[in-house]
Design a protein around this nucleic acid. Sequence first.
DNA 1: TTTTGTAAAATTGTAGACAATCTTGGATTA
DNA 2: TAATCCAAGATTGTCTACAATTTTACAAAA
Lengths: 231, 231
Amino acid sequence: MLLQSDLPLNPSSDDIVGSLRRAILAHRVAPGSKLVEDEVSDVFGVGRSIARTALQALAHEGLVTIIRNRGAFVADPGVREAREVFEARALLEPRTARSAAERATPAAVKLLHKHIAAEHQALQAGDLGKAVYLSGLYHMAIADLADQATIAAMISTLVARSSLIVALYWRRPQALCESHAHHALTDAIAAGDGARAEDLMKGHLVDLLANLDLREKPQVGGSLRDILRQA
Amino acid sequence: MLLQSDLPLNPSSDDIVGSLRRAILAHRVAPGSKLVEDEVSDVFGVGRSIARTALQALAHEGLVTIIRNRGAFVADPGVREAREVFEARALLEPRTARSAAERATPAAVKLLHKHIAAEHQALQAGDLGKAVYLSGLYHMAIADLADQATIAAMISTLVARSSLIVALYWRRPQALCESHAHHALTDAIAAGDGARAEDLMKGHLVDLLANLDLREKPQVGGSLRDILRQA
DNA sequence: TTTTGTAAAATTGTAGACAATCTTGGATTA
DNA sequence: TAATCCAAGATTGTCTACAATTTTACAAAA
């Protein structure tokens, strides 16, 4: 399952949530993958109760789907959900970017540049999954700047779900089309130009959505049974 | 703890979540109350694991706060959080009301009227807690109309948290000031007037916030120990 | 009286056992 | 061959026991 094990010896369920979340968001586990409780507990060296708690927490975030008596799976959002997530982001993130611009400090801007650099580096290294993950961190950093913890938390889960969506529906795996948008946005924030930041964020989200291939996907590997079970 | 026991004999954790949620939102348990796992499991006739799962789910909704080794408490939002919740609602609900108006059917409008009637009846009966709960259901019904499950889910948790906030900060316990706003909003939706619905919702939220007394509350019953622990 | 210290009680955290359910693989039958 | 059935295995659901921690109650000291 490939986990970077920067974990304490007796990890809490939160530690496990974090580790699994990174793995899912960086596309190191595919959407739809089964997450067996015994495996999780073995990998992290805890009892099954803790693993269970972690999986339930991820389910509340929308990154994992739990089906009774069948277990936990990495979430596998459909096109409907993909559109909905970006619809929600469109309501929250532009205004949040404006607030961020209005209260950004030089230190904060520096942090944003660091995020962009890390993302760029991951792309150079060919690690697309990590780049997507880091791109999400950039959006979350902006949300944090706005100093509205409640909204930031909602954006955080939406961004996370977007990583899954990108894994499934991104059109051109090699295009590094985002770099530019993040740079421009950071400039607006550095300049304290709230109105421009709001506009850029709005446009950026539209671009992201436009780069998804949201035609109905034809139930690729599923048996008739699995297909019917989804209804 | 006063639970309306319309529950199955072997309730699932979801059943328990629903029952506890209603109790919290209708102000039948005060913010800050301890929710002891053994009590919950006894009341519902299940093992402690199921009670635990239910409490954790409520914690993810923001209705319960879990402190490690100390247990679960009904959430007790501060003024900061109160403002943040309404800030978030202001971003989501006006646009959602517009969508609702644009796609409302006569049957949906009828449902909204039913909600209003029920809320009115609870107020007449002097059950303010229930009225607040039903008022929340009205907002959630509108969110459902917009046919955006992701946004509706976010609104749902925000509205729920608002019930707690109203319990703590509402200025005039006897004023039935909301009735009018909900009527006008329903009219706009019935007329399919999206722009008006959006405006009315925006104004309604501003009014709600204005009716809260958000001066810093002076740590009413807390010992020095509890105060310091919050940091 | 007020504070401090200590032991008992209460409560939560975690693991593991058992039951319930689902999945798998092979044998049986058409 | 293909479909069906059934038993064995695997996995999840729930409960309970025990460990870790906190809270309470009460006695001792200032």
